[in-house]
């Protein structure tokens, strides 16, 4: 039962912080709210028996990506409410569009025919061992390939960020 309450709580937090990310005026606040959202999501991961993933999630997102965000914000000196005034029309249309997307998505998901898991329930799939098996056996190729991705991103980011020698 407590798990159910945990679900509700974490879901509420995730949604609320998510909204705060979007709605806060100050970018730094947004970043912080996003970190909180990530924690809420990490909590969900734990609930879902994906402990390793939860840890990675915190490390990668909260630890790396968000720091990067903060770093950029600081570097570019964006930590103020510098956003120009948005017209009501833009606000309304954004709300309407996102709202209708939500409605449509929910509506199309709602009538779901129950998904019947083919496997026996196994609470251990989220363990490192299982994940490692899958990742380095079945998903070895994508794993290797993602190195190309990261390399490309790295090269690219460096190339863009460095000052061009004129």
């Amino acid at each position: 039962m407590i798990i159910t309450y945990m679900f509700y709580l974490l879901s509420f937090l995730a949604i609320m912080f998510g909204l705060m990310v979007v709605l806060s005026k100050n970018p730094v606040h947004s970043v912080l709210y996003l970190v909180l959202t990530f924690f809420a999501i990490a909590g969900h991961y734990v609930l879902l028996n994906a402990q390793f993933l939860a840890a990675v999630h915190i490390i990668v997102y909260a630890g790396a990506i968000m720091v990067l965000f903060l770093y950029i914000i600081m570097m570019l000196n964006l930590n103020k409410e510098a956003e120009p005034h948005k017209s009501l029309w833009i606000k309304a249309s954004a709300a309407v569009a996102a709202g209708s997307l939500l409605v449509v998505l929910v509506a199309s998901i709602k009538g779901t025919v129950a998904i019947t898991p083919s496997n026996e329930f196994n609470p251990n799939i989220g363990l490192i061992e299982n994940l490692g098996q899958t990742l380095f056996k079945d998903y070895l190729l994508p794993f290797e390939v993602s190195s190309v991705l990261l390399l490309a991103a790295m090269v690219g980011a460096v190339m863009l960020a460095k000052k061009s020698i004129k």
């Binding site: 569009a97 996102a98 449509v104 998505l105």
Partner: peptide, 20 residues
């Protein structure tokens, strides 16, 4: 960009709506 995204979202809504 805002407008582009807006059109995209609206189009997605319409596409999904056909599914409904």
């Amino acid at each position: 960009i805002g407008f582009y995204v807006f059109v995209m979202v609206i189009s997605i809504v319409l596409i999904l709506f056909t599914r409904l």
